[in-house]
Amino acid sequence: MTKKCFIVTPIGEDGTEVRRSADGLIDSVIEPICKKLDLEMYVAHRIDTPGSITAQVLEHVLQDDLVIANLTNLNPNVMYELAVRHSVRLPVISLAEEGTALPFDISDERTIFYKNDMAGVKSLKQILEKMVNEAMNDKSPDNPVYRAAKSQVMRELKPDGDFESYIVERLDQFETMLSKSANRSKATSVTNASNLGMFFATFGSDNLSSKEIGDLIRRLEMDAHVLPVFQERNNSMAIPIQTSTQLSLIEKILIGSGKQFDTKFIEGSST
């Protein structure tokens, strides 16, 4: 049975630079590799089957044997579909044009960066074909959502190990954030005022218990209206900040925890 590969990509309107770049990457690199490896390729704007395109896209994202995600320009739809794919723990390959600044949540994940020129096409083909073969043979794909689901933090946040409900809930929150981000990008001065940056808190040797982490995350979500991401491997927390009020509330909540921590604020960063 022929295996399926779905391409998650920014699309843009016909004739735009976004569409030309996306189609060029698909036609010159991805499709030839899929044909060579006997993979049936699908792309959202080339699906001609009647019905809801959104439902069809999500079906491919959730069920196809492989997903290749083009993160260039950090398109909100692309980022959401990548998160959905991560939630089902199936093979996915991420690639982006050189110069793309990946969000904090996936900056540590393996990504192929390519040059958008003729020489870049040749180099990308070799690397991508190798990674496709590796991904198709990977029986236990790793990603940020799966790592989080394994952590003890999840067990404290949801009773009875109900990880599926937690993941669906977080994806809904993620979709809301992306929608707000897309709306803000249509404005100018409003965008600058509402996207302050990224706040980091590192707890160092003052280790937090799973219950303390869960309580702190819930407090930040409820009182400061933010979505913190806890990194267990370096005992730190990253929090996207949209308003100065959120920044003040976060600092107050962290100080109130009674824990020792170091902070860093990077202006203009975004998840």
Results as ranks from 00 to 15, higher is better:
8 V>Q: 07
12 G>V: 03
12 G>C: 02
14 D>N: 08
16 T>Y: 03
17 E>Q: 05
19 R>Q: 04
20 R>P: 12
21 S>P: 06
27 D>K: 14
33 I>K: 00
36 K>W: 09
37 L>R: 01
41 M>N: 13
43 V>L: 11
46 R>D: 14
54 T>G: 09
56 Q>C: 09
57 V>R: 01
62 L>A: 07
68 I>G: 11
74 L>A: 02
77 N>A: 00
77 N>K: 03
80 Y>C: 03
81 E>P: 07
82 L>N: 06
84 V>T: 00
85 R>D: 05
89 R>E: 15
90 L>C: 13
92 V>C: 09
92 V>T: 05
96 A>R: 10
107 S>T: 15
108 D>A: 07
112 I>G: 11
112 I>N: 10
125 K>Q: 13
126 Q>P: 13
126 Q>N: 15
131 M>F: 14
136 M>G: 03
137 N>A: 04
138 D>K: 04
138 D>L: 04
138 D>E: 10
140 S>I: 15
146 Y>I: 13
146 Y>S: 14
147 R>H: 08
148 A>E: 12
155 R>L: 10
156 E>W: 07
158 K>C: 12
162 D>G: 04
166 Y>D: 07
166 Y>V: 12
168 V>D: 11
173 Q>N: 13
174 F>I: 02
175 E>K: 03
180 K>T: 10
180 K>G: 15
185 S>E: 02
187 A>F: 11
190 V>R: 11
195 N>T: 15
198 M>T: 00
199 F>L: 01
206 D>Y: 04
207 N>R: 13
211 K>T: 10
212 E>A: 01
213 I>N: 05
213 I>S: 00
217 I>Q: 07
218 R>N: 07
219 R>F: 04
221 E>Q: 14
223 D>T: 09
229 V>E: 12
230 F>R: 02
231 Q>W: 12
232 E>G: 08
234 N>M: 06
235 N>P: 09
238 A>F: 10
240 P>S: 11
244 S>L: 08
245 T>Q: 13
245 T>M: 12
251 E>P: 04
252 K>R: 14
252 K>Y: 07
253 I>G: 01
256 G>T: 02
256 G>Y: 01
256 G>D: 00
262 D>E: 06
262 D>S: 12
267 E>P: 14
